[in-house]
Amino acid sequence: MTEDIIVKTTARLMTPFIQMFGLYIILHGHLTPGGGFQGGAVIGASMILLAVVYGLEEGEKRMSHDLSTVLESSTIVYVLIGFIGIAAGVNFLASGAAGIPLGRPGDLLSGGMILALNIVIGFKVASTGKTLFYTLAKEDEG
């Protein structure tokens, strides 16, 4: 935690824009470069920035460990979406062969299940990056 007003103000002003950029990368994963992992890493980096500047307790208040646990567990949604392919009679995670449209360039909602998979991976990677830093930076409890 720092007392420098320049660092504090810059972090407070930049964090919403960094997180918005990460959300943009996640949501446009099937249209432009990037995807779930890249956008999730950007969002996780913004959470680490908040934790470095305002201290671990403040960051824990913004996003608690229980919320991280829920987000990590949401990966089960990924597996359930993958079973759509098997339910349609083709391979696990199959999209085009199962009759789901593969998307048109420039159309956000035309990607079928790729958008949902990107969102799940984005949340997972963001909370993983945040949890990695918190686990390493926290004071040892005995």
Binding site: I25, P33, G34, G35, F37, Q38, A41, V42, G44, A45, I48, L49, G129, L132, F133
Partner: peptide, 13 residues
């Protein structure tokens, strides 16, 4: 996309 990953993971996390 590798550039985004490198900037976020390599330089940030």
């Amino acid at each position: 996309d590798i550039a985004i990953t490198e900037a976020a993971v390599g330089a940030g996390i």
